[in-house]
């Protein structure tokens, strides 16, 4: 399997504060990877660098061997941790927008998923509840045939039914050879769908392993191990 994402000695400093310190990550295709860490551990900083929203202080991130830029943005589908669409736009117009800019966008899939939730494409985003807005964003992100999906806290603050919907949508829509990077601090909710985890803390990688390895070697869940590693 070819390497999709590679981070080499990635470092990000804000003044004296080091948000990421010499991070090395290599992700291959076909995996669902959990980026796990407490709040403020550097998860979002890493995700922003991968998506080209931040420039690293040193080191580099590459996607398919190329630096972050127009080419990487073509193959990364990104779900930020808050709403990021123009609330005055109709869903239909947002879909047009995605269709125009992302050649891998599957318009039919998006409309199908909206129909399943009985969301009217002519509705404006601002008329929707917070939960529905989040689902619409997830639908847009998962309607792309991307190589790398980066989902920042997709299940934070949602009810169990919505969580099931979100996980199911993720699992049934990503391409077989694609990789999903999910950041979260709610590990128990999500660990069954992961096959690889990266623990990140204070800008350092504390552990990088497969879920089966953790369960076989430690006889405990990732969640339990996480609680142990990050014990306060």
């Amino acid at each position: 399997m070819s390497t999709i994402l590679e981070c080499k000695n990635l470092t990000k400093r804000y003044g004296n504060f080091t948000a990421l310190d010499q991070i090395n990550i290599s992700l291959e295709g076909g995996h669902i990877v959990g980026l796990l860490g407490p709040n403020g551990s550097g998860k979002t900083t890493l995700i922003k660098i991968i998506n080209g929203l931040l420039t690293p202080t040193s080191g580099e991130a590459t996607v398919h061997g190329k630096p972050i830029g127009v080419e990487s943005k073509k193959v990364i589908s990104y779900l930020p941790d808050h709403t990021y669409l123009n609330k005055n736009m109709r869903i239909r117009d947002i879909i047009d927008y995605f269709e125009d800019f992302y050649s891998d966008f599957d318009t039919k899939r998006a409309y199908d998923m909206l129909a399943k939730l009985s969301i009217n494409p002519t509705d404006k985003l601002k008329t929707m509840s917070k939960g529905t807005k989040e689902k619409v964003q997830l639908i847009l992100v998962m309607s792309r045939h991307a190589d790398l999906y980066v989902l920042d806290e997709p299940i934070a603050g949602v009810d169990p039914a919505a969580r099931d919907y979100i996980l199911n949508t993720i699992l049934s829509n990503y391409d077989e050879n694609a990789t999903i990077l999910i950041s979260t601090h709610l590990i128990a909710d999500i660990e069954n769908i992961l096959d690889q985890v990266i623990f990140i803390h204070n800008g350092h990688i504390r552990l990088s392993s497969t879920v089966e390895e953790i369960r076989e070697q430690n006889g405990k869940s990732v969640d339990a191990l996480f609680r142990e590693v990050f014990k306060c």
């Binding site: 076909g30 995996h31 669902i32 099931d164 996980l167 199911n168 699992l171 049934s172 077989e176 069954n192 769908i193 992961l194 096959d195 879920v211 089966e212």
Partner: peptide, 14 residues
């Protein structure tokens, strides 16, 4: 596999 993984909410590789 994909459907079953979706139903069970587990990783498709698993």
């Amino acid at each position: 596999v994909r459907e079953l993984a979706g139903i069970a909410a587990v990783n498709p590789n698993t």
